[in-house]
């Protein structure tokens, strides 16, 4: 079987069949780990609980932001009322 050294020494050869046959003998399909293939299949076909948690986390953030907005608005209203009662 020809190897890489052979090819470096015969690089000027007009035909490329030798390189092709070297590539053919060197490159071959690799099999993925069957455990990986099975695990990935299960993950693809089983709905992930992560999305539920993500959804719940989003809801908590939404509630917090809403509470902060309500508190902020109340504070502004309170301050403005106090200022009005002083000036009045």
């Amino acid at each position: 079987m020809m190897n890489l050294v052979f090819w470096a020494r015969n690089a000027s050869e007009p035909h490329l069949e030798g390189l092709e046959s070297w590539l053919t003998s060197s490159l071959s399909p690799v099999e993925p780990d069957p455990a990986f293939v099975g695990r990935l299949r299960d993950r693809l076909l089983t709905p992930s609980p992560v999305s539920v948690e993500q959804c719940r986390r989003d809801r908590i953030i939404f509630v917090r932001v809403a509470l902060m907005l309500v508190a902020g608005a109340s504070l502004v209203w309170l301050i403005s009322r106090m200022l009005r009662s002083r000036s009045g």
Partner: peptide, 15 residues
């Protein structure tokens, strides 16, 4: 293939 052959030539075939 030509490009790969050129690269092999430049790499010199040294171990």
């Amino acid at each position: 293939l030509n490009s790969l052959r050129d690269s092999l030539e430049k790499s010199g075939g040294e171990p």
